[in-house]
Structure formats: C-alpha cells, structure tokens
Design a protein around this nucleic acid. Structure first.
Lengths: 403, 403
DNA sequence: GTACTTTTATAAAAATTTTAACAAGTACTC
DNA sequence: GAGTACTTGTTAAAATTTTTATAAAAGTAC
C-alpha cells in the first residue's frame, strides 16, 4: 500500500476518464483530449496508466474519418462494481451491477415500508450487508452504493427529509459507516430521468422531462444535461399543480391537483367503483388492498383490449397530457419520456396525451418536443442509481478505488 | 502593435478576471484564485498585467478575517464601454454604459415598430451609428453591443426568428459588419432576468424566475445561475399555458391562456369597457389607441387608490398568481421577481398573487419561494443587455480589447 | 500506383503552473 | 499585552503540462 498523496490532478484526470468511459462506452485519446481540454500526451499518459492498473482496455479501431484510424479505449466491465438500491414506498430492490450495467448477482427484492417504520433503516442495512456477503464479489471491488428513494432528498447533504431519518449525521454517512462503502442517494424520479438520459431513449439529450408513472406521478428533470432539483430540491412537483375545476380534495390539502385524477391509485379506485357498478370488464376486485394488485391488472387488461380499462387510462392520460402541455410551455424540452413501472401503459396513454397536447399546446411548441416511451422500463431506477454513483466518481478521490 | 499570438491561456485568464470584476465589484487575489481554481501566483501575474494595461485598479483593503487584510482589485469603470440596446415592439432605447453600468451619454429613444417593417433593421443600424458618432466615446473604447428584443431569439446563431430577418448571414453578423463592433442578442425577458440576477434584487441567486410585466407577460428564467432557454429557445412561454375554464380565444389560437385575462393590453381593454359602462373611476378614455396611453394611466390611477383600477389589476394579479403557483411547483425557484416596465404595479399585484399562491400552492413550496418586486424597473433591460455583452467577454478573444 | 492530405501517436523541448518557503499583517487567546 | 494562529502576498525552485516536431497509418485524388 503505497501512499502517494502527490499527483492529485493526475488521479483526478484518471477518474474523469473512468467516469466518461462508463457513460460513453468507447472513446479515442483524441476525443478524450477535446472533451477534457487536455493535450493528447496528458491523456495518453493517463490512459496507459489506467490500462496497467486494469481499469481500461483497448477495444479495437474506430472507422477512419480521412486519416489514421483512432485506437479506442473502453472501461473494463469487471474492474469494479456498483451496488444499486432502488426503493419505493412498499418494497426495495438491490442488485450488483458491473461497469456495463450488467447484473453480476441475482437481484434481491424485499418488503420495506418507508412510512412509520422506525426499523426500516436497520432492515435496509442488514439486507445490503447480507447481499454483499452472499455475492461472490469482494467488497473491495465495489466502488460504492447508489440509492434511489421516494420523498424529498437533499442530495448534497445526503438526507431524506421524508423517510429514514438519522440523528447527528446524514443518512449517507450513517449507511456508509455501517457498510463501509461510499453512499449516494437521490430521489427515485430524478434517477429514472438520469437513467433515460445516460442509457435510455433520451441518451445524451440536454433537456429531458421524464414522467415516473408509479403509484403517483413523478417528474424527473434533466436541464442542461444535468438533474435539476430546484432551490430546495422540490422541483418537479407535477402531480400537485392546479389543473382541474374539479373540487376533489387531494392528499396535499389542495383541490384540483393532477394527482386526484391521474395517479395509478386513483385509477384503481375508479376501477373498483366501476366493477361494483357492474361495468362490463374483465377486471375483478379480488383483493382487499385495491391499489397493489389492481394496478397491474388494469395495465394488463388495457393491453388486452379491455374497453373499461382503456377508458380509465385514457381519462388519466388526457389529464396528464394537459399537465405536459404546461410543462412544455415552461421548459421547452427536447423530449418527454414516459417511464417508471407504469411505462408499459405508455402506448395506451400516448393517444390521449397527444390529444391534450393538440388542444392545450401552441403547435410550434408541441412540435418541438417529442413524446417517447421508455425502453428501460422497470430497470430504469436501478440503472439510474448506478449512474448516480458514477456521476460522483470524479467528485471525491474516495470514490475511486485505491489503485 | 505587437502581435503576440502566444500565451492564449494567459489572456483567457485575464478576460475571465475582467468579466468577474465587472459582475462582482471588488475581489482579492485569494478570492480570484479559489474562484478560477488557479494558483495565487498565476492570478497575481495576470492582475498586475491588467493594472499596467489600465483595466484594473487597486481599491483598498477588505476587512480582515483573522489574518493579513487582502488587497482588493476592481475594474476601471472607464476602461471600456458597452452599448446597450433595449427594444420592445414599439420603440427602441440606446445607451452607452461604462463598466459600472453608469450612463456615459444621454439615452436615445426612437420609434421602431418591429412588426411588418422591412426598414426596421436599417433604421436601427443608422441610429446606432449616429449615436456612437455623437457620443464623446471613441469606437475603439467600446467593447461591444448588447441587444435585447422581443420574439424568439436563437442566441448562439444570433438570429431572431420573429423580427429583423437577414439573408445569407445572421442578424448579429450583419449588424456587426455594419457597425464594426461585436454584437450579442437575446430575448428581452431573458435579459431582464439576467439583470435581476447579476445586479438586481435576486443578485447571485441560482434559481430565479423573473416576470416581465409589459404589454404581454414574459418570463425570464435563471436556472443553475444561467439564463435558461430550453431546447429551441422557446422556454418560459408562461403567457400561453392553459389556466382558465374561460373560452376566450387567444391570439395564439388556443383558449384559456393566461394572456387572455392578465396582460396589460387586456386590462386596458377591460378599462375601456368599464368606462363606457359608466363605472366610477378617475380613468378617462381619451385616446383612440387604447393600450399605449391607458396602460400607464391605469398603473398611476391604481397607485392613487382608484378602486376600479385596483379591481382591474387585482383580477389580473390573481390569474398571474395561479400561473406562478404552477411555476413554483415545477421549478422550485428561490425567488420570483416582478420586473419590466409594469413593475411599478408590483405592490398592487402582490396581494392578489399571494392570495392565489395560498390557494393553489403546497404551503411548503410557497414558503420556499420569495416574491419580490424589482428595484431596477425600467432600466432592467438596458442593464441586462450590458450584462449579456460581458457574459460573452471571455468566450472569444475578439470580445476583449486588443490591449 | 503514387502523391497528397488528414488523423493519430510518440518523443523531446519549451512554457507554464504549482508547490514550497518565507515575510508581513491581523485577530484571537491567555 | 504578548504569544499564537491564521491569512495574504512574494519569490524561487520544482513539477507538470503543453507545444512543437516527427513518424506512422489510412483515406482520397490524379
């Protein structure tokens, strides 16, 4: 264990290269040179060091653009690993990913209710520690833990104001101590947006709005190529903008919120009413807990052409579309992506959303924004947490493995 | 005239220092060092060169923070000048400013209708050239021209899609050739926002929404400390978001737009109706051209306590407040500023706006954003254009004077 | 097929930047 | 009130980076 505190800039550059190669697959020295505004010799030196350290490998030649073909370099997928933790209100999923975002161990899903659960944090830590122990990956090869969770998350301070409270130190510090790895947290919708912008359907785009169709309606915002969180981290509260003349009371205490008509929970409740009213549908109200089972059932029924299920989703979609019209006017995004666990309803929602955009959007603006459905789907949050971890890789030298 | 193409990095740093001192008044070498992530000797060298070149002066000592007092450096106000051009639909204002944003020549205001006016561009250029000639400032001491204008402006390409069309080259290139100075353009509302964030009531804040109360309702957005324009430059179209159940047709072709109830033009029209209906008011409909005269008259009458005028503004204010509630949910800004020529109605508008925020905003979000009225007022756009010019000062070496 | 242009890669030279050491000024503590 | 700790500013040496030059590789034009 040599201790070389010198050459901080050099390792800084090397970490930046690792980060970049994680996101960009394969790059040449010339591309890295222009990207970081460093001379080619500097880049060459760092890349060669990274190769001898086992982080980077040559990956063939790129086609020539009229001159000598550039030699490409890629990250070595198994150079290190990332522990991705994706939480929602009800359950939590853990998975070890390599630097190609490929799973290197089976995922672990376990029930973890965040609301009014003082033991949630300890359960989480225990599960993570067990998961790491059971995997065949030594802890020293894990670069860190990325976690996505609902609620109001202060990313810089590493605190979740809504859940998993700690005293005396931040949530990330606490978990980091108990597990012995660096920890980064962010809001689930923001991470889904990050996943779509880094590895999904909106890759490399600078201004992207990602709708997280879950039990509620989340919004993750990519602004100028980065996750946007607003002044206090409250940005993207799309589900509570006033959008209806309706007087239905929302859980937030206001009336007319989007959430009162367009969330999966509300759709499920309406489905139960319809079933009780004898509507013709393949849906059945079998469970006492309406939302959980019925949500998936509605998506499936709609996919199979059930008219009642389609009607329910269309109503919700039109209201979402009205909200998106507002979002387009304010943000003028390049792309809006429908993502999250409800993304498989995307195709069905698309028609009423487009209809609403026609009605509520200035044509020139509607044309400037493309509507897309995620291809990442359920994996978006996991990949987003990994991306979060790597986003911070060049921030602190701790993030890098002690090579 | 020495021609030294070498040491590009050095002049780059010097331009960055000039820019920073323009925005920040007075800084020490230590502050500049941490700001630019350069060593103190590097900064000292550049600053000393700038002093001998006449751009920077020493400006006393700052109070000690527990050690030796730092020597402060400021920009020399008369080292160079900026030509600020502020346009609206009807008239254009020109003024030469020094590096303290102080006028160094009387302003020139002249009628210049942008709509359907093929001669507008030539008139503009002629007026600018005459203005420079009549001033006592040699052209070589003018660093460049900053222009704010209504319409959809593509800042990077230097084009206004709405007005002042050119063929074969960009608007900025054309004007630049005809006048012989670098030219930068941007949307008027964006520049007002920039002025508020650099020199106004929202100084140094990272996330600021600035409402440009003019004949319409503009929105200038500061996101992560920079002007935000969206994917195609259409961001901030607040005046056409669907907000009303009302079926009044808007000029944009849609129904329910904010602009149909809250713009100064609509308020003026409603005033005329009221006068004709015999409403008790000090307002008089004396002119055939309703908007221009009446707008100012309403602001003044409301200021003097005229109940009818106050009622008109309150109605508009409440609707604006509803739109701001939506804006707060999406952007979570630190501050919203009421600015532009209608800013003097700010105090009157504030009450109904706050009322709407109470009704439509999640309390925690409403509390996170402060509502302020501009102190820059009518000068905001002029100062914003100067700031635009200096924002670009370090971008290209051309911007810097050939010292 | 040869010459020319374009692009990448490497090595030595030049330039710049940072580090380190020291001097000077100020506030806080005892 | 003296000592200590902390901050700024200057100079010279050390380290790093970039520039320049050169070679190699690949496409394009004649």
């Amino acid at each position: 264990m040599e201790n070389k505190p010198k050459n901080i800039k050099g390792t800084q550059l090397k970490n930046m290269i690792i980060k970049r190669l994680y996101f960009d697959k394969a790059l040449s020295c010339a591309e890295l040179s222009t990207l970081f505004d460093k001379s080619i010799p500097s880049i060459t030196k760092s890349v060669n060091e990274l190769i001898s350290e086992g982080f980077v490998v040559e990956s063939g030649y790129a086609p020539s653009s009229g001159g000598r073909r550039p030699l490409l370099y890629s990250i070595k997928s198994d150079a290190m690993y990332i522990l991705a933790v994706a939480m929602d209100q009800i359950s939590t999923r853990i998975q070890l990913l390599d630097l190609s975002n490929q799973a290197v161990a089976d995922s672990l899903t376990f029930d973890l209710r965040l609301k009014n659960n003082t033991e949630a944090l300890e359960t989480l830590i225990e599960n993570i520690n067990n998961y790491i122990a059971q995997s065949n990956i030594p802890k020293s090869k894990i670069a860190g833990i990325g976690m996505g969770m609902p609620g109001f998350v202060n990313v810089r301070q590493g605190i979740n104001y809504s859940y998993l409270h700690t005293i005396g130190e931040s949530l990330t510090e606490y978990i980091s101590k108990k597990i012995g790895l660096p920890v980064y947290i962010d809001n689930d919708s923001s991470l889904i947006a990050l996943a779509e912008q880094k590895f999904g359907i909106a890759k490399a785009q600078q201004n992207v709005m990602v709708i997280n169709l879950g039990w509620g309606i989340g919004l993750g915002m990519i602004v100028n190529g980065e996750i946007f969180r607003g002044h206090n981290g409250f940005a993207g509260e799309l589900s509570h903008i006033p959008i209806l003349d309706d007087d239905t009371l929302c859980s937030c205490g206001k009336r007319g919120c989007l959430e009162t008509v367009a969330s999966m929970l509300v759709v499920a409740e309406k489905a139960i009413e319809g079933i009780q009213d004898g509507r013709s549908t393949s849906l059945k109200n079998t469970d006492n807990n309406p939302s959980k089972i019925l949500g998936d059932a509605i998506l499936e029924a709609a996919g199979n052409g059930d008219p009642f299920a389609i009607e329910l989703l269309s109503d919700a979609g039109f209201k979402i579309g009205k909200a998106l019209a507002i979002l387009i006017h304010i943000m003028n995004p390049e792309t809006i992506v429908l993502s999250g666990r409800g993304a498989r309803a995307g195709k069905i929602l698309m028609a009423p959303i487009q209809q609403a955009l026609h009605q509520y959007c200035i044509p020139r603006l509607a044309e400037s924004t493309q509507m897309l459905v995620s291809s990442l789907g359920f994996d978006a949050e996991l990949i987003g947490t990994a991306a979060l971890m790597m986003e911070n890789f060049d921030k602190n030298a701790k993030g890098a493995l002690n090579a």
